[in-house]
C-alpha cells in the first residue's frame, strides 16, 4: 500500500506492541484482584474450616479457645439485623414512595435527595456515635439489641431508599395512567400496581442492606455492644454481641486457638452473606428479564 512508508511501519509495529503490553497490564490488574480474593478465601478455609461444626454454632463463648462457640453472637446478629431490616424497610420504602410519587420537584425534595446521597457516604463509625447518644443515652434504651438494631437501621436506610427509588422509577408511567383512567386514587395505583412491580428491585436493595448490617462492626462497638456474652439475648432490651464483634475479639487475642475460632466465625459469616447475595442475584435476574408490563 502506497502510504505505508518504512517509518510508518516501524511505528505501527511499536504501537501494536504497546497495545498488547497494555492489554496484558489490564488483564494482570484483574488477575491480581481475583488472586487476592482466592488467597483470602483459601487462607480462611485452611485456618478455620476444621473448627466449623454444629457444636461451634451452638456453644457460648468460652475462655478455652477449643470450647468457644458463636451461639450468642449469631443470635445477637439475627436480632440486630431483623430489627434493622424491618425498621429500615418500612421507613425506606415509604420515603422512596414519597420522593418518587408524591414530592414536587422543588428545593425541599432536592435537599432530601442530596441528604440521602451524603448519608450513604458517612463513615459507619459515625452512626455508632449517633446511636450511642440518641438511642442508648437520650432515649434510655441502654446498650441493648433494640438500640443496636435501630442504629443499624439508620445506617442502611440510604441504601434501601436509593434502591427503592430506582425500582419505583423503573415502573412504566403507563401503568399508573392505566390505573388512574380506571378511577384509582394515587395510593391505589401505588399499592396495587407500582409496588408489586417494584418489589423485586426493592427486595434486592433490602438484601444488600441486610448484608451490610450483618457485616458491620464499628458502629456497634461504639454504641457499646459487649465483646464477651455468654448468654442469648432474651428480649429487645437485652445486652448482646454480634458475630463480627466476636470475630474481632478473637482476632485480637494472642492465642492461635482463638484465631482459628475467628476464622471459623468468618466462614459462618461469609456463608450467610453468600446465601443472601445469591438470593439478591436471583431476584435481580428475575427482575431484569421481566418483559415490559
Amino acid at each position: 500500500m502506497a502510504a505505508a512508508s518504512p517509518d510508518f511501519r516501524r511505528r505501527m509495529t511499536r504501537r501494536q506492541w504497546e497495545g498488547r503490553a497494555f492489554h496484558g497490564l489490564c488483564l494482570l490488574a484483574v488477575a491480581v484482584a481475583l488472586a487476592m480474593l482466592v488467597l483470602l478465601l483459601v487462607y480462611l478455609a485452611r485456618q478455620g474450616l476444621t473448627r466449623v461444626s454444629w457444636e461451634f454454632i451452638t456453644s457460648f463463648p468460652s475462655r478455652d479457645p477449643d470450647q468457644a462457640g458463636i451461639k450468642a453472637a449469631l443470635l445477637g446478629s439475627i436480632y440486630v439485623v431483623a430489627i434493622a431490616a424491618v425498621v429500615a424497610f418500612t421507613l425506606g420504602v415509604s420515603a422512596a414512595i414519597y420522593l418518587e410519587e408524591y414530592a414536587v420537584r422543588n428545593w425541599r425534595s432536592r435537599i432530601i435527595q442530596v441528604n440521602i446521597t451524603n448519608l450513604a457516604g458517612v463513615p459507619s463509625i459515625v452512626y455508632g456515635i449517633l446511636g450511642l447518644e440518641i438511642f442508648v443515652r437520650t432515649l434510655g434504651l441502654g446498650r441493648s439489641v433494640l438500640a443496636g438494631g435501630l442504629t443499624m437501621a439508620l445506617l442502611v436506610l440510604p441504601i434501601i431508599i436509593i434502591a427503592a427509588q430506582e425500582a419505583i422509577r423503573a415502573v412504566p408511567p403507563s401503568l399508573r395512567e392505566g390505573a388512574y383512567a380506571l378511577g384509582a386514587t394515587r395510593w391505589q395505583a401505588i399499592w396495587h400496581l407500582v409496588l408489586p412491580q417494584a418489589m423485586p428491585g426493592i427486595l434486592t436493595g433490602v438484601i444488600l442492606a441486610v448484608s451490610r448490617a450483618l457485616g458491620e462492626t464499628a458502629p456497634l462497638i461504639v454504641m457499646g455492644a459487649l465483646t464477651f456474652v455468654p448468654f442469648a439475648p432474651d428480649g429487645p432490651l437485652s445486652r448482646f454481641t454480634v458475630l463480627p464483634i466476636q470475630i474481632f475479639n478473637w482476632t485480637s487475642r494472642p492465642q492461635a486457638g482463638f484465631h482459628e475460632a475467628a476464622a471459623a466465625g468468618i466462614i459462618v459469616l461469609l456463608a450467610l452473606l453468600l446465601t443472601m447475595n445469591a438470593a439478591a442475584i436471583v431476584l435481580r435476574n428475575k427482575f431484569q428479564r421481566r418483559p415490559e408490563g
Binding site: 480462611l44 450483618l214 470475630i247 461469609l270 447475595n277
Partner: peptide, 9 residues
C-alpha cells in the same frame, strides 16, 4: 461485600 473485620483478620 466482604465485611471489613474479615479484611482486618
Amino acid at each position: 461485600g466482604i465485611p471489613t473485620v474479615v479484611y482486618g483478620y
